[in-house]
Amino acid sequence: MAELQALLFDVDGTLSDTERDGHRIAFNMAFEEAGLDWDWSESLYGELLAVTGGKERIRFYLEKFNTAFQKPDDYDQFVKDLHAAKTKFYTQLMGEGKIPLRTGVERLINEARETGMRMAVVTTTTPENVTALLTNTLGPDSESWFEVIAAGDIVPAKKPAPDIYDWALEQMNLKPEQAIAFEDSYNGILSSAGANLRTIVTINEYTKNDDFSQAELVLNHMGEPDEPFEVLSGDAKGKTYLDLDLVKMIAEV
């Protein structure tokens, strides 16, 4: 039995409900600034989440949902510029405190930090988005709490490919059995499970109907002592909120 050495956190939907109330809003702000009449509703955005990565999501939208749009000659730069504007607006929303951490996240991260547990961020979102979320929720020095920030285009193949988790484990010199992943989506669990990582899932409105059969534990959120989680799948060992003790019991089976 390998001893747990590291917690690997996805960002969007896992640490914070950033997709609906952050990224979607920021995309629409970028579209408006660019003079585009595009509007990504909550339901449409749920369909766009089938694809990971912001630039990839814009391309997917134009290929499947807005096929009449006349793509400019410098299409690649057009997509890149739109995504850069979206990142700017996302950071702005973060700075305004519009996107808080999900229930139980700050408590678990602080407990891990206080006990010397190693931590990493493993996500398809950009490094700028990671910095914006961490600094505006956990504090200006919180990015340094994470040994590795595996984000954005650091590997060519994004989730659901396991590459980003494989890269993070390699950087930390860890075997999969020495770490555990935290995810919220089907693409996420495919990625973490593909890297042979045990995974704890906290669902959100967009992912509540996803297939999480490969997860060790599926919860509605991480919970607090006065706000118990709901166990959707797996064994919570009689616990009512996700603390480091429960994480270790799941990881060190």
Rank of each mutant, 00 (worst) to 15 (best):
V130P: 07
T14S: 08
W40M: 01
I200M: 01
P140Q: 15
L133W: 09
G238H: 15
S144D: 12
V130N: 12
N173M: 13
G46E: 04
D37E: 11
K248A: 07
R24V: 00
K55H: 13
L49C: 07
V231N: 02
A157K: 13
E106F: 01
F65G: 08
K71L: 08
L169E: 10
A179G: 02
G35H: 00
Y186I: 07
G35A: 01
P225F: 15
T199R: 00
K64F: 11
L138W: 09
L244R: 09
T123G: 00
F182M: 02
K80P: 14
V148M: 12
L48Q: 09
V253T: 12
A50I: 09
A2E: 10
E33A: 08
Q92Y: 14
K55T: 15
I189S: 01
A151Q: 10
L93G: 09
F78K: 04
R20M: 13
G22D: 00
L232D: 10
D163N: 02
A151V: 09
P228N: 06
V247E: 00
A157Q: 15
K98N: 04
I250A: 02
A26P: 06
D21M: 09
H221K: 11
L62K: 15
V155K: 01
E32I: 08
I109A: 04
D184C: 04
F78I: 07
K64W: 04
N136F: 05
S142I: 03
F60T: 09
A34T: 09
